[in-house]
């Protein structure tokens, strides 16, 4: 079932077409990956889909509803959440509080209830806490629950962001380079996690640089270059697409050798 529809999405930054006329769809239970060389516009595309940027043109539909340009908090209410390429962790809060924040929508009640610590508020807080601990366990951070988030390693923070995004109970989950900066073991863990999430019925949208990871877990791959969509299809066909190889060999492959 197709959950997320992207049609002709585009945005300009000071006359430069950062993303231009991108269309694709993401289905529930599948991993849809957006790949492309650095500066191809992947994160910008994510920012438009998640409501952080307002698209200049095109349309985003979530489960048939037009959600183009609506605020991220509204999108979260409709079941879309995300992680960030450069971490947006609440550094001064504990790991548990970060995860709990993801449950904001299900935990929130009236301010009065919160200030007076009324039974209903306490019950919701308890439920949220149970949920958050479960998610932390799932990303193997439960041992660090009371640690201040700022003290965690990069890879741990990446997992914490995923846990936080899952607290929303998303139907669509946008993951922006979840494996960046992770070692081989961590990458494999994230690999498994993403596959599980998709299997549970979430439409996972993934931006990732680790090609092996992408090819292994994606059901559908969209390739961007210079803001344009140059290919789309299953991992197999995309990896053999001459356009894609050109785009990658022209930049990434050389970068990889040099770096």
């Amino acid at each position: 079932m197709t959950l997320l529809h992207i049609e002709g999405l585009g945005i300009n930054f000071g006359g430069l077409k950062a993303v231009d006329n991108v269309s694709f769809a993401a289905a529930a239970g599948q991993v849809t990956s957006v790949i492309g060389p650095n500066g191809a516009g992947k994160t910008t595309l994510f920012n438009m889909i998640s409501g952080v940027y307002t698209p200049g043109s095109g349309r985003v539909a979530l489960d048939g509803d037009n959600v183009t340009g609506i605020h991220p908090s509204q999108l979260a209410r409709r079941g879309l959440s995300r992680t960030f390429q450069n971490l947006q962790i609440f550094q001064d809060m504990s790991v548990l509080d970060n995860a709990l924040a993801g449950f904001h929508l299900s935990e929130r009640g009236s301010v009065w209830g919160d200030m007076l610590s009324l039974p209903a508020a306490r019950r919701r807080a308890r439920d949220a806490r149970d949920g958050a601990m479960k998610l932390l366990k799932r990303v193997r951070l439960d041992d660090l629950a009371s640690e201040v988030a700022g003290n965690l390693s990069y890879g741990q923070l990446k997992r914490l962001e995923i846990a936080r995004a899952l607290g929303v109970g998303p139907r669509v989950l946008l993951l922006d380079e979840p494996a960046a900066g992770c070692n081989a073991v961590e990458t494999e863990e994230i690999d498994t996690l993403i596959a599980e999430l998709a299997a549970s019925g979430i439409a996972v949208l993934l931006v990732e640089h680790d090609m092996k990871l992408v090819m292994r877990i994606s059901h559908h791959v969209v390739v961007l270059d210079h803001g344009q969509m140059i290919a789309e299809g299953d991992p197999e066909s995309v990896s053999q697409n001459p356009e894609v190889i050109k785009a990658y060999l022209g930049t990434e492959a050389v970068d990889n050798v040099a770096g």
């Binding site: 908090s73 979260a76 904001h104």
Partner: peptide, 26 residues
């Protein structure tokens, strides 16, 4: 009471990152 409630946590969260806070529905 407020500190450890949904509201208090959301306040601290938006202090940390307004964008991230809004993407979790705050």
């Amino acid at each position: 009471n407020l500190y450890n409630s949904a509201t208090g946590r959301a306040l601290r969260a938006l202090h940390g990152s307004e964008v991230a806070a809004s993407t979790i529905g705050i």
